[in-house]
Amino acid sequence: MGTLSKVIYIDSAGREYAVDATVGDTVMATAVRNGVPGIVAECGGNCSCATCHVWVSEEFAPVVGPPNDMEEDLLDMGVSDRRSTSRLSCQIRITEALDGLTVEIPPEQP
């Protein structure tokens, strides 16, 4: 197993889920495998369904960076409440620099 990093998910009711994540995994896969509700990820990380939408916390947004082109298209059309920090969590790979990454889960996925 790779090194661990912590990811904190906050659901729409304000509940926090702090999960140990493996560097190299995605923020989506880490949430799904650990049963964090609200990240559906039907397509399994293929950037095809837009059901793993999260809002990245302001402090981490610059580290995480902007969406890629394909993701941009899905965010544009596919999510209900797009914000400047919106990302598809299947497209965020966990690095050591993201230890403590906090993301919010929108109340609904498409």
């Binding site: 899905l74 059309m77 596919g78």
Partner: peptide, 13 residues
């Protein structure tokens, strides 16, 4: 053309 696909998915929904 993922944007086309998402637009149609949304329209149908």
């Amino acid at each position: 053309r993922p944007a086309d696909y998402m637009a149609v998915r949304k329209a149908l929904g």
